[in-house]
């Protein structure tokens, strides 16, 4: 399992690490009800802002 601390990923940002571990996250998060979010800019949910109170990305329009 690669992590942000692993030597071979030390030059990667979090977004790259998350995508590189997509299979792991799909397994971990599978019991959680989530909106379908196709990858890529087309057709997916739009994340407008970061809500730092609840530490989540917001799917609603800002």
């Amino acid at each position: 399992m690669s992590t942000l601390n692993s030597e071979h990923t030390s030059d990667k940002n979090l977004d790259e690490v998350l995508l590189a571990n997509a299979e792991h996250f799909e397994w971990l998060l599978s019991p959680m009800p989530r909106s379908s979010t196709p990858p890529g800019h087309e057709g997916g949910l739009v994340f407008h802002k970061f809500n730092s109170m609840s530490q989540t990305w917001s799917r609603s329009d800002a």
Partner: peptide, 24 residues
């Protein structure tokens, strides 16, 4: 919150996009 971040990244958000997002 990790899941939301992961979903945001899957939808195409990158660290560069973050720079343009106003602070709550």
């Amino acid at each position: 919150s990790v899941a939301n971040c992961y979903d945001a990244v899957r939808s195409g958000i990158t660290v560069d996009d973050l720079l343009d997002i106003p602070v709550e």
